[in-house]
Measured scan of single mutants.
Amino acid sequence: CHSECLGNCSQPDDPTKCVACRNFYLDGRCVETCPPPYYHFQDWRCVNFSFCQDLHHKCKNSRRQGCHQYVIHNNKCIPECPSGYTMNSSNLLCTPCLGPCPKVCHLLEGEKTIDSVTSAQELRGCTVINGSLIINIRGGNNLAAELEANLGLIEEISGYLKIRRSYALVSLSFFRKLRLIRGETLEIGNYSFYALDNQNLRQLWDWSKHNLTITQGKLFFHYNPKLCLSEIHKMEEVSGTKGRQERNDIALKTNGDQASCENELLKFSYIRTSFDKILLRWEPYWPPDFRDLLGFMLFYKEAPYQNVTEFDGQDACGSNSWTVVDIDPPLRSNDPKSQNHPGWLMRGLKPWTQYAIFVKTLVTFSDERRTYGAKSDIIYVQTDATNPSVPLDPISVSNSSSQIILKWKPPSDPNGNITHYLVFWERQAEDSELFELDYCLKGLKLPSRTWSPPFESEDSQKHNQSEYEDSAGECCSCPKTDSQILKELEESSFRKTFEDYLHNVVFVPRKT
């Protein structure tokens, strides 16, 4: 048989008469490798580009789960590009990614509803959504962080984005990388972005840091009482949809009607710091009717980097990364020049730590249904340095008659930039024990000054392991946590139920 035959053949030295091919099969003959313009397919066939392209389009058009959109890589027609490569849609070739590779997620039936953290986790790592997304989240724990972890990498949506009755959302900033909504599939009414009845939605994105392009379709905003109209108009300008909307697409009466839409800028007039305090004062603000001013709200939190936005980490279910302080308005003076500047002394802060701070007014709604208010920009203030805590785990070892090696770990709280350490030492008198000992005694162990690591005695271990207080009263049991108490109650309830079950099964009433 021919060298490319495997198993047997019907005619000697003829690659077209093989029972099976050793390498690849091409047009009725066995070959060692697939010549151009053919590609290896499933490690035994040679196919042309049209064959591989037909497989790709067949799966793409069917949208069946589990099928493969075949691509070409290293002269092979394979189910998908290997790690580190992405497909070129024009020629199906796998090309190296520039940075992290995109991950295209194809949605069944063309859309997916995100109504819980669990459903959001199914899209973790996706960068391109081939379909439409509907966000409908009523509640949950730590929602802002969970949504950002699972949806934060999405850069492109081919269909539309719909935010509907998501009472738990305060902001859409968890879509931190969303840059493009194509609108290839539109919501009824030709809408590519749809926001309806979101009672706590206050911000779409921080438009000073976020760009969003909507290729096709219109915007729809109705019944978002805490979303200011200025935020919607800003989205029109940034996304390129200005002029597409009709009169009733953006409701003037049901958007922002319960919001404090600040239209003035508060400026800080005085800032002073110490290692654990920050004193702030800002310019006074009074609405047209000074009785509408209820006070100020001061927001602050630790910020290692200057990239904080107002609604980071917030949701309507209680999660809030900001510390909020309510401040009463100052006494009002008739003389504008003698107006008191409101302020606040922030206490209990960490030394040498940068804080993000902003302040906003708290006002009631005027009778004319106009909203007044003022808010400052987010500023960054760093507390002063102070003395560091003591170095940890000092170790001293003498390696000769004239040297001592000293080692330690950095302090747990540096409280500033540590530039150097101060080492103090003092000579001590020799131990009298060394002169009084009889060095001729056998088995004498000389006193040693070398360091030995501390260890816990058996008594201390027994005390720590004991669940009861000892007789001397030195140790006591740790208080039980809520989960331990709940577990004990469940076990007790189970024992009672099981005992009742045994009584009912074992003891049967005697027939009379």
Rank of each mutant, 00 (worst) to 15 (best):
D393C: 15
D335F: 10
P329F: 02
L169F: 14
K209V: 15
K112G: 15
G183N: 01
A149P: 03
D393M: 13
N224A: 02
W286Y: 04
N198R: 00
W286F: 05
M235V: 04
I129C: 07
D377V: 09
K226L: 06
E109W: 14
G131N: 03
H233A: 05
S333E: 13
R291D: 14
I357P: 00
D257S: 03
V128Q: 01
S321G: 03
L362G: 06
N211A: 12
L153Q: 06
E184Q: 08
V359R: 00
T118D: 11
T215W: 01
E155V: 15
N136V: 09
G343Q: 01
S173H: 12
L298K: 00
N334I: 04
D197W: 02
L349E: 00
C126S: 01
S398V: 03
S269F: 00
T361D: 01
L279Q: 03
I154T: 07
S119Y: 08
V308H: 00
S401G: 12
S166Y: 02
G110P: 04
A144T: 02
W322G: 03
D312M: 07
L153I: 12
I214G: 01
P410S: 15
S274R: 10
G295N: 10
Q199R: 14
D384L: 06
D257W: 06
S400M: 08
T118I: 06
N141W: 15
D292C: 13
S274H: 10
N150G: 04
K226N: 13
D206T: 05
A259P: 14
F268I: 02
T215R: 14
E187R: 13
E146K: 15
G139T: 03
I379L: 10
Y194M: 05
L279D: 00
F220T: 14
L161C: 06
L172K: 00
A120Y: 11
Y194V: 07
S402I: 04
R291G: 05
C317E: 15
A303Q: 13
N200G: 02
N211W: 12
I114A: 02
S321K: 14
I404Y: 01
D335E: 15
Q403K: 15
I163T: 03
H341G: 15
G125K: 08
N255E: 03
P351V: 08
Q258N: 07
S274N: 03
D326L: 09
E368I: 09
G348T: 15
F296A: 06
V238K: 15
K301G: 06
Y160M: 13
D384R: 04
R247V: 07
S116I: 08
C261E: 09
C261Y: 04
A149E: 08
G159M: 01
G139S: 15
R247N: 04
C126A: 01
I379H: 06
L108D: 00
K103F: 06
V397F: 10
V128M: 08
Q258C: 02
F220M: 13
Y355P: 00
T254C: 07
G217D: 00
N200L: 09
G318R: 09
D367V: 14
S192A: 02
R369I: 14
N248I: 10
S338Y: 04
K242D: 14
F175M: 10
M297P: 00
L212F: 11
Q306I: 02
S158H: 07
G189W: 08
Q306L: 11
P288A: 07
F174S: 08
G217N: 04
Q339W: 06
P287N: 03
P342N: 11
S402P: 04
D289P: 02
E283Q: 00
K409L: 06
A316T: 15
I114S: 01
S166T: 11
N307H: 14
T127Q: 10
I129M: 05
T213M: 09
P342E: 06
P394K: 11
G217S: 03
L294W: 11
T118N: 14
N198G: 02
L133S: 00
D377W: 07
S239T: 10
L151R: 00
I379V: 14
W207E: 01
T353P: 00
T241K: 13
C317R: 00
D206Q: 05
S333G: 06
T185K: 15
K177D: 15
P411L: 01
E155S: 06
G139P: 01
F299C: 03
S239G: 15
N399V: 09
K360A: 11
S402L: 12
T361I: 05
L133Y: 01
A195V: 08
K209F: 12
L108F: 11
P284S: 05
M297Q: 05
W207P: 04
N198E: 00
D206N: 09
L107D: 03
E146A: 13
E156K: 10
R164V: 02
T241A: 13
S333M: 05
F268C: 02
L298I: 07
A303N: 05
Y160P: 02
E156Q: 07
A374T: 08
L331Y: 06
F275Y: 06
S400D: 14
L293S: 04
D115I: 02
G125H: 12
L107R: 07
E368D: 11
I327L: 04
N141L: 10
Q306P: 15
W344S: 07
K234C: 10
F296Y: 15
A149R: 08
R165E: 07
L161G: 00
P336R: 07
G217W: 02
A316R: 13
L153C: 11
Q203K: 12
R182I: 12
T371C: 15
I135V: 05
T371M: 07
P288E: 14
G373I: 03
T371R: 09
P288I: 10
N130Y: 03
Y194C: 15
T127C: 04
C105K: 01
T213Q: 13
L180K: 11
P225L: 07
V104Y: 06
T323N: 13
C317L: 09
N320R: 14
G217R: 03
R247E: 02
K407W: 06
N387L: 05
L293M: 11
T113G: 06
I181G: 00
L252G: 13
V381L: 15
L212C: 02
L212R: 00
P329M: 04
D335N: 06
L280C: 04
D289C: 14
P287I: 08
L201K: 00
S230H: 02
Y305R: 07
P394H: 03
N334A: 07
E156A: 06
L180F: 13
T118H: 14
K301R: 12
I137N: 01
I357T: 13
E184L: 08
T371S: 10
A259T: 11
R164F: 11
C126M: 01
L186K: 11
Q199W: 07
A145I: 03
S396I: 14
T371P: 09
I181L: 10
S173C: 09
T323L: 13
K301Q: 05
I405W: 10
L169V: 11
K409S: 13
G373T: 08
V238S: 13
T254A: 07
Y191F: 04
C261W: 05
F193E: 00
G348S: 14
I379F: 05
Q258G: 04
G373W: 09
E111G: 15
Y167A: 15
D292M: 09
N340R: 02
R247M: 09
G140R: 08
Q121R: 12
V324R: 11
L406N: 04
D292I: 13
K267A: 11
I395G: 06
P351K: 03
I278P: 00
K112T: 04
N334G: 11
H106P: 07
I327F: 04
S333Y: 02
S158I: 13
V359F: 03
K277L: 07
D312S: 09
N142L: 11
E122W: 14
N198K: 00
C261Q: 03
Y300H: 12
Q216S: 11
H233T: 14
R202I: 01
V359S: 02
I157F: 02
W344K: 13
G343H: 13
N307F: 10
Y191W: 11
H341F: 13
V170I: 11
G110Q: 13
N130S: 00
Q354R: 07
L280F: 01
I250V: 15
L172N: 02
L186Y: 09
S400F: 03
D206P: 11
G131A: 04
G343A: 09
E122P: 05
H210K: 13
G140Y: 08
S366L: 01
Q199L: 10
D292P: 10
E246L: 07
F358A: 15
L349T: 03
T371L: 12
Q258T: 13
G183P: 03
S366H: 15
Y167R: 10
I188Y: 10
E148G: 07
R244L: 13
V324L: 08
S166G: 12
I214S: 03
H341V: 07
Y160T: 11
V170W: 06
E246N: 10
L294C: 05
S132M: 02
I157H: 00
D328G: 04
P329H: 02
R281I: 00
Q258V: 12
R244S: 04
V359L: 08
S260E: 08
E302M: 09
R244F: 04
R291Q: 14
V128L: 03
K301L: 09
F311Y: 15
D257M: 15
P394M: 09
D257R: 05
C126F: 01
R179M: 12
P304Q: 03
N255Y: 04
I404N: 01
K360N: 15
F358T: 04
N248V: 09
S402F: 11
W282T: 02
T361Q: 14
S398F: 03
